[in-house]
């Protein structure tokens, strides 16, 4: 075996995956996260660092368009696969390294880039006219709710306008987080994502592990004790407190830090059913107001702290909700 092929062999034993997830396709998404964690694979932050584009669940037209654009941005060699449910996840992923190794250049459409929009100008807080850039957040972004696109106008680092668009909600979309066990797991999933955005990756991974253990039918008491320990560490962390306290306080829900503490406390007490929280449509309605005037990293934290499950939008998408 010559050097190049040895290099190639080693190169693709642990591919990086970029996920395009349909709302409600949480089952296969969790299976995917679990597989990558256990096998030492990574989820890519962007197309530039991905070996495979994985479409999870049934993508509608706008989400397919997103996947199409991303697929053209993936550096070659690259593989594209789609997964309908959690059953086939392990098998499909296990074949991935071999598919990457045997990849040969084909006559694909060469690099085509979506042209980024030019900056516009608008009055800023001091009444001066300054640049405004329109930046879409999502639908493919680390720790981001599936099917959500938040289009923001940024002046410098400050959001001056935001608009919610929903993608991928079809007549067949069903929420995944139903029943008592899954409700508890949902809290851990939300905590994992918020901690992930806050950059506390070790703790985020811990939440994912406990979430998967809960879903796999792990004994409640063990998970509860573990979550209790974790909750105490999260509550006591001064760095995390400085990051989350006072962010997006909502009536009845508290600020981002309290929401996170409450999620973990609920799981530790093993009682989640009683607190349903406001419907997602209501949260999406207030979202543009809540993120107004926020800095970009704060926007990310706020969105993660609201635990938005787009699949709970009951009626199919009608061009998205817009609010300003």
């Amino acid at each position: 075996m010559d050097l190049i092929s040895a290099l190639r062999r080693a190169a693709f034993t642990r591919p990086n995956l970029l996920l395009v997830v349909a709302p409600g396709a949480t089952g296969p998404r969790l299976a995917m996260e679990r597989f990558t964690r256990e096998h030492g694979w990574s989820l890519a932050d962007t197309a530039a660092d991905a070996d495979a584009l994985v479409e999870i669940g049934e993508l509608d037209e706008p989400l397919t368009a997103v996947a199409e654009v991303l697929w053209r941005q993936l550096p070659r060699p690259a593989v594209r696969l789609s997964l309908g449910d959690e059953v086939g996840v392990g098998e499909a992923l296990a074949r991935l390294p071999e598919r990457l190794r045997s990849w040969r250049p084909t006559d694909e459409p060469s690099e085509e880039w979506p042209e980024p929009p030019m900056a516009d100008r608008a009055p800023d807080r001091d009444g001066l006219r300054l640049d405004v850039l329109r930046v879409p957040l999502g639908p493919v972004l680390p720790y981001w709710p599936a099917g959500l696109r938040l289009v923001v106008d940024m002046q410098g680092d400050v959001v001056q306008f935001a608009e919610v668009e929903l993608l991928g909600v079809t007549g067949r979309t069903r929420p995944y987080w139903t029943g008592e066990t899954r409700s508890a797991a949902r809290r851990l999933d939300a905590a994992a994502r918020l901690l992930g955005v806050a950059g506390w990756t070790a703790m985020s991974t811990r939440c994912q592990i406990l979430r998967d253990r809960l879903l796999a039918g792990g004994t409640g008491t063990f998970v509860a004790t573990e979550v209790d320990r974790l909750a105490r560490r999260v509550r006591r962390s001064p760095l995390l407190g400085a990051m989350l306290r006072g962010l997006a306080p909502l009536p009845g829900l508290g600020d981002a830090h309290e929401r996170l503490s409450n999620w973990l406390a609920e799981v530790a007490r093993a009682s989640t059913a009683d607190e349903a929280g406001p419907p997602v449509a209501e949260l999406l309605n207030v979202l543009p107001d809540v993120v107004f005037g926020a800095e970009l990293s704060v926007v990310r934290l706020i969105v993660a702290s609201l635990d938005l499950d787009i699949a709970e939008i009951t009626e199919p998408s009608h061009g998205g909700i817009s609010h300003g």
Partner: peptide, 12 residues
Amino acid sequence: ADVAGGVTAELS
């Protein structure tokens, strides 16, 4: 990760 890798976002 909150800005998709920031400076590294487009590096391949």
